[in-house]
């Protein structure tokens, strides 16, 4: 029987390594403190919540005939190929309609997916609008040659049933000789309304969410009140994109620390370097 190694093996073998571990732990604590202290207020609701989307979501849209430059066709002929973003305006509109369509066009350019994930249908709810009026409007907006934008008209009764099913409302105001109406674009997938965006303009971030939904995905997270220090992925409603957050680093930290600690024990501890003489 013999003793192996010097007396020092009986003391805790981590003397200088213990200090290194304390420094590492202190650094980690400082990181947590700084992250927490400077945590940003979390973003508000990712998109402007339309007033009555929940009353219409997943409801069937009436499959009405519309007249377009391709002739008379049912709406289903379009939404059977691709989901549809449907909006209603009138060509004599002196107020929001053209700016609304321009913002929709801009949001579509930003969000992408036009032609591949969806097409756009613009109908008039004005009984006096003709197909020529709508084509002129499209030309003014530079959209008459775009195959993924369809401008058209339908019968007043069909327009009324479509409006009732999708949340559009419109009312003639004789004092202004204009229609008061909702500014609304609805997303229709296989004949069912899935999203609704209301407002005088269409934010790109909101449209990005709608396009996600049309692709079968949706933004599952929402903002908690107050500051949030860590997530794996942060949803930014202004850009409509996910970005990596520090939470992902925290998920990778345990495995990384285990590997580093193992390397430290096997390669750096002095006692380990004197090993293998005993084998």
């Amino acid at each position: 029987m013999h003793k192996t190694g010097p007396q020092s093996r009986h003391r805790l073998p981590f003397r200088w390594s213990f200090r290194a571990a304390c420094v590492a732990f202190f650094a980690f604590s400082v990181f947590i403190f700084v992250r927490v202290a400077f945590a940003q207020d979390s973003f508000g609701q990712p998109s402007q919540e339309p007033p009555n989307e929940e009353r219409f979501v997943y409801k069937l849209t009436p499959d009405v005939p519309i007249t377009t430059s391709s002739g008379v066709q049912n709406l289903s002929a379009i939404w059977h190929e691709k989901p549809v973003l449907l909006t209603m305006i009138f060509s004599r509109c002196a107020r929001v309609c053209s700016p609304f369509l321009r913002s929709l066009n801009s949001a579509v350019s930003d969000a992408g997916g036009l032609g591949t994930d969806y097409r756009i249908v613009v109908l008039s709810f004005d009984p006096k609008d003709t197909l020529a009026d709508m084509q002129r409007l499209a030309s003014e907006l530079g959209l008459n040659a775009d195959p993924d934008w369809t401008f058209g008209v339908a019968s007043p009764s069909d327009i009324r049933s479509l409006a009732a099913a999708t949340g559009f409302w419109f009312q003639w105001d004789s004092s202004t000789q204009q229609f008061d109406h909702a500014s609304l674009v609805v997303a229709i997938d296989r004949g069912q309304l899935v999203r609704m965006l209301a407002g005088p303009s269409v934010p790109a971030a909101s449209l990005r969410e709608v396009v996600q939904e049309l692709r079968g995905k949706f933004v599952a997270s929402y903002a908690l009140a107050g500051k949030v220090a860590f997530r794996c992925f942060e949803y930014d409603p202004t850009s409509g994109r996910y970005s990596l957050d520090w939470g992902l680093a925290l998920m990778l930290l345990p495995g990384t620390c285990a590997i580093l600690a193992t390397a430290w024990v096997f390669f750096l501890l002095p006692a380990s370097r004197k090993k293998r003489n005993l084998i």
């Binding site: 929940e54 979501v57 997943y58 296989r190 899935v194 692709r215 079968g216 995905k217 949706f218």
Partner: peptide, 13 residues
Amino acid sequence: YPKANELPGKVVF
């Protein structure tokens, strides 16, 4: 998990 190729007929919150 929700599938892209199916659409519900009703939503309950």
